[in-house]
Design a protein around this nucleic acid. Structure first.
Lengths: 189, 189, 189, 189
DNA sequence: AATGAATGAGTATTCATTCAT
DNA sequence: TATGAATGAATACTCATTCAT
């Protein structure tokens, strides 16, 4: 049943988040999922092979958040703020695990999958940019797909820098959001 | 002797690069360094504690490359191209290990060090921006330090996306460099 | 149906032969037999309990070969040659699995069965000896049953030595057959 | 130190003998040897790779026993009795483990070693036969080396049959020794 | 400082066996 | 009878770390 695969993936997210890639144990993952040790290997050939499944979940979460938080009826500048807000909040919640996926996937052969998995996320942002071009809110020569990847990369790296250190205070983070907003709005208009 | 610490760090870079964080073993690192097993622990308290040393090496390499490749006498637009070129080339060479450092550091308690280590790298780019402000080549209200982190993040994430997949061809990569150039120059001017 | 028991036994022979006792898995045996995992346990209480079934098959094959290859109408010396030929050919084909049965049975509680299973094989050879005694072709005081076990042991161990190493060439093997013939004929006449 | 290798081999003999090949655990072997788990793998690359070491020990024991028990000053017939006695006693003590070595080696790549290891044992018996030829106690055309392997195979297989079943009583075993003596003396003279 | 043999805790993975269907 | 998903006990093997020399 696909059900168990989901249970395992969910539990793996939690465990990887709490323990990191090396300290995370399959036995803890299955305990959290409420299935037997062997069941894990019915769905995943190895400990690291859950990674693409986890990535998929995170991408879906990200897309859902974008849909939920970004209001198409607002002008682009507001939408950009909302995108930044959303990516910062996702990064805050999942940054440890995003790093792990990144490192984990980089060390396996799942790279091809990775591209496929992330595609819809980039597309979501691209379509927002496309609409802004049509509405003449941003440069007419903006390539939505290209720009979306740059924009996401920019915001994510800014968010990473913000949340990397626990002792970062809220003011600094808000400042960072403003910086990245100014930088990107300036790039786009 | 400080010499052996260097040997170990260099060997560690190679081994981490080849094997990834999980498969890398202290025994292979010391073999590569030509020292005994115990010697490792004379210089590093644990396996993961080489990470900051590795990061330091990479930062120094990066700074050296920037100094070497970026020509202060050129106009800022040329210097920006050179910065992009440099960061792309560093990423190409070290992206696996950068991911590992990132994941490795994120899962340890070396975060404080991390900030200190990376500081000079950001500063290097900041000083280039500062000069450009003084020369009125970019917006006068640009905050060099803030903008440097954003700019580096933007370029690095673009480079990551470019080199993540082996099958990326050179044309796509050159295109990516142009995209990131256009995006950032537009943000800065 | 007795049919499936046969399928499983046949598949087990193949798998044990290919993988050895430790690497052989029930899952591969059932795959080869085209039945489900659970079906195995409908016919055999445990993995090792196929062993007597396998032994039975091999004994039957051996007896059939003896019947087919040894010609009662020939003088004993010819029959002895034929016996040697037959045992060598059986050993060549099944020596790995014979060793496994031996080791496998030795480590279980199926020993009693083992004796019963092998009995008809010994008897077959004993009856050949008996006839030779009656025909005064070999020593009159030969005890057929006793001598049969010795003779079979002698020939089997010679064959084992011959086929243990892949690199044994045919000449050496033919020589071994002659040696064992000379040795045994001398013992019997 | 070669010392620990010996300790491990000795302990392995005991554990394999008591538990059989599948139930024997490395952890029990090292416990018996009084060394740590990891130490095992300092001397042997895998569980099964102790087998050649065990075989070597057994061959040495066998040779020592032959030297001790077979009296060169006695006539050959007496020496043959002593050889039979010796091989039976070795088989009684080690038959389980001999089967295991046999199966174990058959499933590994140590076959070449096996031949080398056993050589001195065959040679020991061959030299006894050689002397008997010289003393004209047995057939002048006896090839000592060839005959030694046959003779050992014959006696070992007889001994195996004797000790295979726990319920064999001493009378039967003594009878078997006599049978094999009669058979072989008749073959040799 | 340097060594490297020894340690032993730790865990991914396997697979015989069960049992609800 | 037959299935095959699920189980979970069992274990070989690894490797970071220590410490006597």
């Amino acid at each position: 049943m696909e059900d168990k695969k989901q249970l395992i993936t969910q539990s793996a997210i939690k465990v990887f988040q709490e323990k990191g890639i090396e300290k995370a144990t399959v036995s803890e993952i299955v305990k959290g999922a409420g299935v037997a040790q062997g069941t894990f290997y019915l769905y995943f050939p190895s400990k690291l092979s859950v990674m693409p499944s986890i990535a998929e979940v995170l991408v879906n979460v990200s897309i859902d958040r974008l849909i939920e938080k970004v209001d198409h009826d607002q002008p682009f500048s507001i939408q950009l703020e909302q995108i930044i807000e959303t990516i910062f909040s996702i990064t805050e919640q999942y940054r440890d695990i995003l790093a792990l996926i990144y490192a984990g996937l980089a060390s396996t052969e799942h790279l091809q999958e990775w591209e496929t998995i992330y595609e819809p996320y980039y597309e979501r942002v691209a379509s927002i940019l496309e609409e802004a071009v049509e509405n003449k809110e941003i440069k007419r020569d903006t390539n939505p797909a290209q720009t979306a990847t740059l924009l996401i990369g920019l915001i994510e790296s800014a968010a990473d820098q913000s949340y990397l250190y626990d002792f970062q205070n809220d003011d600094k983070i808000e400042q960072k959001k403003k910086d990245v907003y100014k930088f990107s709005i300036s790039a786009l208009i």
